[in-house]
Design a protein around this nucleic acid. Structure first.
Length: 417
RNA sequence: GUGGGCGUAGCUCAGCUGGUAGAGCACUCGGUUGUGGUCCGAGAUGUCGCGGGUUCGAGCCCCGUCGUUCACCCCA
């Protein structure tokens, strides 16, 4: 009998490293909440049509990476490969766009793509995302980008860059596509590359091979085909980012893999992760809601890969001290004898009722072992309680970093924190 | 999905041209009868990923398989 193991390509987080995952995720969420975004908690699986219509049938995500199955009622169900389509579906279904706009929401959870796993790419991965729906102003584009950027800065990250471009409106894109296809037809590529070009000619812009880059160097760029309105919008976004103090580079060769993107698009890239270097990305998706049967509202949002941001934090060693501050205990209690154990358990419980972060040594270990546990816990203070302390009502409160201790009345212990 | 590397103790890894498994860290106990971190000593821990094959004999060679990793591809 073989051992049961986790399915291929899933990423699990357990102690002590799970603290880092939690810290990263909560920090990402906090900057969304602080900017007025509210939670949407959505299903991890949806009707398959939502993704084929929303994300686009020609995308790799839909055509070969979805976990699709038939449920017991014969419906075609797909584990969500991304977050935006589900948010749009719910907004339309529950008429959330009938109130004041923009509607600003955030989400967090697991997403699924059946890809070949490698560092930073998992079959179940975690994203935190936001969506701002129903406002076409460049100010909201800048806000969305700033929310992501602020969360990275709050995590202490430095070695990342923001790349932005504009995909313009549908008319501009159609015009450009004609010219791009014409240009590519003059080039000599292998069969696989031509097949990619046929599916989406923009793809060739982010090919990693030097010979392809060389051949594409003179290809017509979409950014040169933008109409005046798109151009003005993109200019405004850039000047806002500059005044926010957010550094960026315009990358007109940036390619996004989901069909719904229009206008402003962006990507946060970190070079410490290997081949999977995108830690977050997003953009405007002005036709998506109408495409899914809702009102023709514009929208913009991002998805940030929690797994990858965690890798970036590890590469920069940016959060280890923040984590010990965020999670360490105030006090660690040690019961010296069998008789004091239940007293200590009660004391511990009442300290926790006062909001003090505390724990105690369980089990019958020698004092040395218990002190070691206190040390390991990272608690700032420790206290040993035996029958002497019980009788006198006082015990020594020890500062674990300086080693100093002083006598404290047990009844007033909670006032020390 | 395609190609290369790697799977040995909880972790990081050593193990020579095949001869029957080891180190460091971590853990438990003790040195120090009620005060951690350093030091010293002792102890426990393995289907050598799994399944076949070759061989007198396989952790080592061969085949398959699963996982992982790196690149392509794709993207968070």
């Amino acid at each position: 009998m073989s051992k049961i193991q986790a399915p291929k390509g899933v990423h699990e987080f357990f102690p002590p490293e799970s603290q880092e995952f939690e810290y990263v995720r909560e920090t990402l969420i906090k900057s969304a909440k602080d900017a007025g975004y509210q939670l949407m908690e959505l299903p991890a699986f949806e009707d398959t049509d939502l993704f084929t219509r929303g994300v686009g049938e020609s995308t790799d995500v839909v055509s070969k990476e979805m976990y699709t199955f038939e449920d017991r009622g014969g419906r075609s169900i797909t584990l969500r490969p991304e977050g935006t389509a589900g948010v749009m579906r719910s907004v339309i279904e529950h008429n959330l766009d009938k109130g004041q706009l923009p509607l600003k929401v955030w989400y967090s959870g697991a997403f699924f793509r059946a890809e070949r796993p490698q560092a930073g790419r998992y079959r179940q991965f975690y994203q935190v995302g936001i969506e701002a729906i129903g406002l076409a102003d460049p100010e909201i584009d800048a806000e969305v980008i700033a929310v992501a950027d602020r969360s990275f800065k709050n995590l202490g990250l430095k070695n990342y860059r923001l790349e932005i471009t504009s995909l313009g409106d549908a008319a501009s894109r159609a015009l450009h596509k004609v010219e791009l296809v014409k240009f590519i037809a003059t080039l000599d590529f292998d069969e696989a590359t031509m097949a990619r070009a046929a599916l989406n000619p923009l793809r060739l812009f982010d090919d990693k091979r030097d010979e392809v880059r060389l051949k594409m160097a003179k290809a017509p760029l979409l950014i040169d085909f933008l109409n005046q309105a798109s151009k003005d919008h993109f200019e405004r976004v850039q000047s806002l980012l500059t005044s926010f103090g957010i550094a960026f580079i315009v990358n007109p060769r940036m390619v996004r893999g989901l069909d719904y993107y229009t206008g402003t698009t962006f990507e946060f890239v970190h070079d410490g992760l290997g081949a999977q270097s995108g830690i977050g990305g997003g953009g405007r998706y002005d036709g998506l809601m109408a495409q899914l049967g809702g009102a023709d509202h514009s929208g913009i949002g991002f998805g940030i890969g929690v797994d990858r941001v965690l890798l970036a934090c590890a590469a920069e060693n940016s959060i280890s001290t923040k984590i010990s501050e965020a999670y360490s205990l105030d006090l660690f209690l040690i019961a010296m004898s069998e008789e004091t154990k239940s007293y200590v358990a009660n004391l511990l419980n009442s300290l926790r009722n006062h909001g003090i972060r505390a724990d105690m040594a369980y089990g019958d270990r020698a004092l040395k072992g218990s002190m070691k546990a206190a040390d390991k816990s990272g608690a700032r203070f420790s206290m040993v309680i035996g029958s002497d302390e019980l009788n006198s009502g006082e015990a020594m409160l020890k500062n674990m970093s300086t080693g100093e201790s002083r006598s404290i009345r047990l009844a007033a212990l909670h006032n020390e924190f």
